[in-house]
Nucleic acid binder design. Sequence first.
DNA 1: CTTGCCTCTGACGTATGGGTCAGGGGTTAG
DNA 2: CTAACCCCTGACCCATACGTCAGAGGCAAG
Lengths: 130, 130
Amino acid sequence: MRIGDAAAAAGTTPRALRFYEQNGLLPPPRRTATGQREYTEREVARVRVIRGLLALGLSVADLRECRDRLDLLDGDALPPYGGPGACARPSGVADRRLAALDDEIARLTRLRDRLAARIDTRTPPVRTGP
Amino acid sequence: MRIGDAAAAAGTTPRALRFYEQNGLLPPPRRTATGQREYTEREVARVRVIRGLLALGLSVADLRECRDRLDLLDGDALPPYGGPGACARPSGVADRRLAALDDEIARLTRLRDRLAARIDTRTPPVRTGP
DNA sequence: CTTGCCTCTGACGTATGGGTCAGGGGTTAG
DNA sequence: CTAACCCCTGACCCATACGTCAGAGGCAAG
């Protein structure tokens, strides 16, 4: 499969695949005699995993840290806490990202409340929970 | 007052003042015969207002929209909802920013919960509220 | 053989709020 | 007069995940 079809199969673009390769998330694929990239189903699956994790807020740098385990994941669940896959163990990339998300949410919430207070005290903060 | 002192008095840097001027948040200040910028207390106060609003999450583009009212604000409160200062009326910059903040908080919260679910179901979402 | 689509590499653009030079000139104290 | 510090403009840098373009070459169909 050449890069266009592989990208379409993974729901993305050729540019993204080259980008992942350049950034160490995808190993350099086999090339044809004329230099064109050839992808297997396994590599396409790995791209799907990568995109799923990116969509969850992990960064390219995060994924590069556990690139050697990216194609062991089935795209449906990270290895459980403390399990053999180290992506998710404490201080691992996923935990760090979770902590960063919590910090960011707290920061934005404080901003939101302060901004709302300066606009109009008749507009109370809106909480997303019940 | 030259730019270094004005910046220090406003709690920022010369570069920031030139940046605000370049982006239409500060009117071009008076210049000395040799071309150096001269600031008054009033302009310094305006810089403080600008920095307060930026710290609240408003963008430079937001502030540019109401630049003609920036030095009417006392830095302690935006004009009330529906008041004569239009910065804060519905669909004004502050309201748009508030809505954007709410959207962003909701988006990050969804991400956070999905990421947490993939890491470990034993880690329930942490809410900042009581 | 040509047409048209695909791929290659490398480089620049995107938005944000400034930071950090670089090369030149102003300002003030000694 | 000169050192030391300040200011001027213009230009590039940061991080993110790619989009877009440019020029050149590959590949299958008619």
